[in-house]
Design a binder for these strands. Structure first.
Lengths: 186, 186
DNA sequence: TGATACATGTACCGATCTGTTCACCTTTTC
DNA sequence: GAAAAGGTGAACAGATCGGTACATGTATCA
């Protein structure tokens, strides 16, 4: 299998795990839906867990890329970028394929503290917080670290409630709070 | 099996599902750990899903009772109650047995929109929001519904991040934001 | 054309899944 | 004390789990 094919496998496996959950998605289904035989899958991933980790790596990279790029597109100031994030979330919640945050779900299913999947899930949140902090610094926030953590808090709460309620309202509510927190920034 | 025994079964099954997850916890393990034979379990619950629903009903009732009572114990004004909630969360995060919110995890593993488990999980959040709104009204908040939703947002974000990071810090951060949102309420 | 390398489908492994059957054993009740 | 009721372990069914073995392509290179 070429590297292309391998990437294609991970790409096609992602929505399966995202929609059905990790434990509930069997490797037979992965093989059937991706069109890659189980033999080939196990030639490149020693275990199901390794495949899941590859899927999470892809998700981490593509989600953060997507979010950061959209934020840059839709606002030109750092403070503006942090605020439009909630508009972007709202658009995400509207998509039919929206099923909540893949990393929250991963850490919910693999919650042992040392677990590689659990660690990777939290790493995703840490990287997001880091990006928020950088923007908060550029926006001259009085306490950039604190603002970044608060915005992450609002983002995670909004995602969870949007996924559970099947509505987009939590995005708007989170944005309102964010506006209060950022009132002093331009 | 007496009603007592049945309640005991549900009570003892709860931490199993909470710790190990729903799909990952087999009925053989439930029988072994609760001391109730599989035969008896299936006499009172037609399917695993029904047992899970009973567990979630117990969790919903006991968690809300526990939280509301603690809030009343630790503060005498409605606004104070809403604020100490975050201190209570922090204590919860400190417990060794803390593994995040059982309903978030349930809706993560059973995310089909019509699913009974999914519906029940969201109902838990709705009831919490209702309680928050009642308190917000009593505290003469200018927009009680909005404040209730915002506090719920902060609470869910804090729980998710505390579970993923294995720290209690999100509770304090959420409380700080809550204080800002409630600055006008005595 | 013949040898090498790799991807394939299929069948299989042992374990585990939800759920059932059944022969026993207590306990309650009349 | 016998019948009825309800609980037990253990074995089982049929399906699916993660993972492997193997024989059959099929493409590349000499």
């Amino acid at each position: 299998m070429s590297q292309n094919k391998r990437a294609e496998l991970v790409e096609n496996a992602l929505p399966l795990f995202y929609r059905n959950g990790f434990h509930a998605t069997g490797m037979d289904l992965v093989a059937k839906e991706t069109g890659v035989s189980k033999t080939s899958i196990y030639k490149h991933f020693r275990t199901k867990e390794e495949l899941i980790l590859a899927v999470l790596r892809l998700r981490d990279e593509s989600f953060r890329n997507w979010l950061c790029r959209k934020m840059e597109e839709m606002a030109d100031t750092p403070a503006g970028q942090l605020l439009v994030m909630f508009d972007i979330l709202e658009q995400w919640f509207l998509e039919d394929s929206f099923r909540g945050c893949m990393f929250i779900k991963a850490s919910a299913e693999f919650q042992d503290q040392g677990d590689a999947i659990n660690l990777h899930a939290f790493e995703h949140k840490r990287l997001l917080e880091e990006h928020f902090r950088t923007l908060a610094e550029q926006a001259n926030a009085s306490n950039p670290s604190q603002l970044a953590r608060e915005l992450l808090l609002l983002k995670e709460g909004a995602i969870v409630l949007a996924a559970m309620s099947h509505t987009t309202a939590p995005a708007k509510q989170a944005k309102q709070v964010a506006q209060i927190l950022m009132a002093d920034l331009a």
